[in-house]
Amino acid sequence: MLELRLVQGSLLKKVLESIKELVTDANFDCSSTGFSLQAMDSSHVALVALLLRSEGFEHYRCDRNMSMGMNLNNMAKMLKCAGNDDIITIKADDGGDTVTFMFESPTQDKISDFEMKLMDIDSEHLGIPEAEYHAIVKMPSSEFARICRDLSSIGDTVVISVTKEGVKFSTKGDIGSANIVCRQNTSVDKPEEATVIDMNEPVSLTFALRYMNSFTKATPLSNTVSISLSNELPVVVEYKIAEMGYVRFYLAPKIEE
């Protein structure tokens, strides 16, 4: 038996909106730690890892570890029916083939339940090694989204370079080229508006903008994003989910032959 009650139901709605473009079907894993998911996109270029810790739920009951295969588009369709202020409860029976999403309005005058069919998904679980990153850039998530969107109107790939001068996002395309440099600025009024660059070694990597743009669908989840880079390693683009966990996107780099 599984019963997870999330007072801030809008978080789950936002999580689904952030990953449904990248991943079609995925197994949600439920354990005493929390509600999590790990899935690759169909071309195995990107990986998403989601964690919603059990402590972040108002009520968290998970009698034994469960893996529930869901079509994320269908799940998003159901969650769209929840109001932004609704409390969402996820319920499932051990060994059952359905999951129920219950939505309660804040004043308790409207209660809905939506039952969704589960599916069997053969998914590969990957071990993500702990890595020391050469550089970690923390910046406003809206700024990062803006940069990815702007650059994708010029080119298909972005070169992200971190030096002591700052972080540079560059692209080239048929019509020309573009460079955007963001410098560390910790003297802003609000900490979420700061760009903080933590660099051990200069790093420069090339990535497909199409994926970066897809990751920025998670912007509503967090005011800030952190981008962790190491030469020859996938980049990690992390959006923290207030008091609950995170959505992390890993993207393999492109290399020159």
Binding site: M40, S43, H44, V45, A46, L47, E124, H125, L126, G127, I128, P129, T157, T206, A208, L233, P234, Y250, L251, A252, P253, K254, I255, E256, E257
Partner: peptide, 14 residues
């Protein structure tokens, strides 16, 4: 000329 690497080249299957 540029090759897209796969995530599975970095992270082992468990």
């Amino acid at each position: 000329r540029s090759t897209q690497l796969s995530i599975t080249e970095f992270f082992p299957s468990t």
